[in-house]
Design a protein around this nucleic acid. Structure first.
Length: 106
DNA sequence: ACGGTGACGCTCA
DNA sequence: TTGAGCGCCACCG
């Protein structure tokens, strides 16, 4: 990734973790936070993704809420749903279907 | 340095 | 079950 963006270690860490999420699977903000040893920084994780300069490189659309809801998306929640469906992740009413089954653990 | 903000999570009513 | 409030951490102006 030829990036010039000066992201903090926290952001880089978050992005790196999310990049590990395989297609057809989803992870929660909480899981990512725990992966970086900051289980309470779930909000900070979301903040990092919100500003995330990489789009297709980092599958941020595969990161959903702990509740199974999509949460939000800078490019539009609708787009996020479409992307997930293309990968095999079906979404019903802004909620991930079979969330517990496709949930990915780091 | 300080205060406000946000792609969250949990508890309470 | 749904809605509102509080707490948590990191980033930005």
């Amino acid at each position: 990734m030829t990036n010039k963006a000066k992201l903090t270690k926290f952001e880089l860490l978050v992005l790196a973790i999310i990049k590990k999420i395989p297609p057809g699977r989803v992870a929660t903000y909480e899981a990512v936070a725990r992966a970086i040893s900051r289980p309470r920084a779930v909000r900070a994780v979301g903040n990092a993704l919100h500003k995330n300069p990489y789009s297709p490189q980092v599958p941020c659309h595969r990161v959903v809420r702990n509740n199974g809801q999509l949460g939000g998306f800078a490019s539009g929640a609708k787009k996020k749903i479409e992307l997930l469906k293309k990968e095999g992740v079906n979404v019903k009413n802004g909620r991930v279907d079979n969330f517990n089954e496709i949930l990915y653990s780091f």
